[in-house]
Structure formats: C-alpha cells, structure tokens
Design a protein around this nucleic acid. Structure first.
Length: 424
DNA sequence: TCACGGAATG
DNA sequence: GCATTCCGTG
C-alpha cells in the first residue's frame, strides 16, 4: 500500500474528511461548525484564495487577506448577519487559551494553527516531556510538490526537566486498518500529578519567548513528584481505526509489574497525566514516554491526508537507556475533539501573544522542516520509507526489542511489542 | 486600525 | 461549551 492508498482509505473513515470532500457552501447555515473548522475549510478551498491564504502552510500559519469578508462568510454560515472581524477575532482570541490558534504577533491578520506541544498534551510536563520532538505532517500528496504543510513544532527546552527521556513516537501514521494507541492508566494513578505539572509548566521559563499571562493567574500548587514510583510500565494498545477507540483489539503490558488498571476506569488517551506509568522521577532515568499529538486542528481534520512522523532525539539517548526501550506509537482515533485536551496549557505552550517580544516569528516554536530528518521527499517514498527514522528501532539486529509494524496484510492481527524493561 | 481580554448573553 | 456582542484599553 502506498501513501496515496493510505490517504484515500483514511478519508473514508473520517466524517470530517468526508465533509471536506464535499465542502459545504460558505453560505449555507451550519450551526454546529466551529470557527477553526470553518477557517480550515476556507483555506482548503481555492476559491477563497482572495480572502484567506496559507502564509506558511508548513507551520499552520494563515492570513486573513480580507478579514471582513471572512467574517461575513462566517456570519453567513452561522446565520449571524452582523458578524464582523471584531467579533470573529474575539472568537479567535478564545482559541489562544485553548491552544488551537494563536496570533502571529506583528503580522496583521495572521494567525497560526497551533500544533500540539508537549505541554499542551502532557500536563505532567516536568517528567513526561520528551526532550525533543520532530514532527511533520504531510497534507496531501499533490501538495508536497510545493510545500509540505508540516506542522513542525519544537517544545522549548525545559529548565525544570531533570530527566532525559528516550522517546520516539510515530504519530498519525494511521493506516486504514490500523491505528495504535497508548492504553493509559487512570490519572489517579499518576505519578506526575496535574498539580505538579501546573507547578512546573507554569513556571516562567526564561528560555521561552512564550509566556501565558493567564497561566500566572492560576494558582500554583507546588508539589514534587512522588519518589515512590520507580517502576515504569507501559501498555500499548492497537486498535483498528474503523472501530471505536475503546474497542481495542488487544493490549500488552510490560514485564515491569505495573499495577493493574483499576476496573471501571476508562483511560483517556488524551489525558497524558495518565502516562504516569511512563514517568520515573529522578534520579532514576525515565525510560520512555509516549505522546499523542491530536489536538491540532489540522491534525484532527486532515489526519487522513497528513502523515505525522515524530522522532525524538532519542536516537542517541535510546542507546543510553537501552534500545529495548524504543516504543513506537501512533495516535489512536484522530477524530477527537481538540477541546478535550486537558486544559492545563500553562507555561511554555500557553503564550497569549501579548508577551513582549520582537515579532511573531520569535514567538512561534517550530519544528525543523521535514528535510531535517528526511533527506528525501517522504512522499516519493513508500510508507516504509516514511517511517525510516524509526528503522533503527525496529531492526531486531539493533535492538533487543523487535517491533513489528502492522501491515495491511495482518491488519486484524495484534502486533506484539515485547518490551524489556531495564533493571531499575 | 488592529489587537486584547473582561463581561454579559444566547 | 462555544461563540456572539459590546466595550474599554493600549
């Protein structure tokens, strides 16, 4: 199966994508659509190129060429005849808090869809944030010829981070038949409690040009991670994309004797506080953390068209901690509301756009371009080549852990991920 | 003029 | 919850 097939198949699984294939008229009333969806829709339709455009599609950055015209269309869609840019922009500003859209400071009418950053996704940022992550999304095969709308975002360094993670995540490579998810334990079992994450992520970081002023309003409840949890555990669940997220076909738990999940506790794949079992407080080196990146609107709506590859800079650190800890992970259901993301966006990723800064560019974290870790056009390659960054981790010859990526031929089978835990 | 966020409201 | 509407401020 090639990328094209993959995309086509994925489209059929996505209501949103289906909707995009049959775009609603900007004039028709749809009270359910949200603004960011509407904007994405406009951006995807060439006929709107005179009122809205991607300025740096690779970064999710777009500009309202004719803001009032966009607002009028928005008003038509929502049956709000008095809609104008002033009101529309107020709605956009609410997105700042939700980490869906941010303002590109210094550029008039320029906004940016926010890619997922570790802090948005992982409230337990202090110990659960991978040191570095590279991620690229490929929007569409034909678009690759001019620009890859790669949502590349690099979480800034965290001073508070005292641990080094070997993290490698492959995201969004949901083949039509297979998706992969982390089956997470309950947040109540979390080592990295939300409170500690607030404390850490809301700590003003001098390294970050982004600072959410609102986060300072929140009460900080300083706490330290539990020193008792020294065991890392891991559970990877593979699901079929066609099924509901909860109907995972199987799961596998590591040999680290993790506490069994509480009965009746339904893991929330988005709640990365639930990744606590991957979090090991210092001085013991944490082994891994799996992250999902699903709250980006583009990721949400274009997952079938997007290819997301993340590769932490764990290639080296994986060697440190042992190649046995090199899990791969893809997202579970891509069709998940970004607004279900935990609201703890404080700190690095929560800039409100009004932080003193030189310009918008300096306030936007970007992942390196695709070429940073893809020497060739990824879409000219096969699916296998797309995940080539992970190849070293998937080679039994280099790893005591073999990882078999589910293929189209065994899509209904349950891939196994034998994971050997180092002695702590 | 643009951008921001509080507040009230639907 | 997600805007919409209005408004004061910079």
């Amino acid at each position: 199966m090639n990328v094209s097939d993959l995309m086509m198949s994925s489209r059929t699984t996505s209501p949103l994508l289906h909707q995009q294939q049959q775009p609603q008229s900007a004039n028709s009333i749809d009270s359910t659509i949200t603004l960011w969806q509407f904007l994405l829709e406009l951006l995807q339709q060439e006929q709107n190129g005179d009122i809205i455009e991607w300025t740096r599609g690779a970064d999710g950055e777009f500009r309202l060429i004719d803001a009032e015209a966009v607002a009028r269309k928005w008003g038509q869609r929502k049956a709000k005849p008095h809609m104008n840019y002033d009101k529309l922009s107020r709605a956009l500003r609410y997105y700042y808090e939700k980490n869906i859209i941010k303002k590109v400071i210094g550029k008039k009418f320029v906004y940016r869809f926010v890619t997922t950053d570790a802090h948005a996704m992982a409230p337990s940022s202090e110990y659960c944030t991978p040191p570095e992550m590279k991620m690229c999304f490929v929007k569409d095969e034909k678009d690759i010829t001019h620009e890859i709308p790669s949502f590349l975002s690099l979480p800034p360094p965290t001073h508070q981070r005292t641990t080094d993670f070997s993290t490698l995540s492959l995201l969004g490579t949901d083949s039509p038949n297979t998706a992969h998810s982390v089956s997470t334990p309950s947040p109540t079992d979390s080592v990295c409690s939300p409170s500690s994450s607030v404390a850490s992520s809301a700590t003003p970081s001098t390294s970050s040009p982004i600072e959410d002023t609102r986060s300072r309003k929140r009460s900080l409840s300083p706490s330290t991670p539990s020193a008792t949890a020294t065991q890392a555990s891991m559970s990877i669940t593979f699901t079929t994309l066609a099924t509901t997220p909860s109907s995972s076909s199987s799961s596998l738990t590591t040999t680290a004797a993790p506490p069994p999940p509480k009965k009746g506790m339904k893991p929330n794949p988005l709640n990365l506080t639930a990744t606590s079992n991957f979090c090991v407080p210092p001085p013991i080196s944490p082994l891994l953390m799996l992250q999902q990146h699903q709250n980006s609107p583009l990721f949400q709506t274009q997952i079938g068209q997007l290819y997301a590859i993340t590769a932490a800079n764990a290639l080296a650190s994986a060697g440190l901690y042992g190649p046995q800890m090199s899990p791969l992970l893809t997202s579970q259901s891509p069709f998940r509301s970004p607004l279900t993301t935990p609201k703890n966006l404080g700190g690095l990723g929560g800039g409100d756009g009004r932080t003193p800064g030189t310009n918008g560019e300096s306030q936007v974290f970007q992942f390196p371009p695709v070429s940073a870790f893809q020497s060739t056009n990824p879409l000219l390659n096969t699916f296998t080549n797309l995940i080539s960054p992970m190849a070293p981790f998937m080679m039994p010859s280099q790893s005591s852990t073999s990882f078999k990526f589910p293929s189209s031929t065994d899509s209904l089978k349950t891939p196994t991920v034998p994971i050997k835990m180092p002695t702590l």
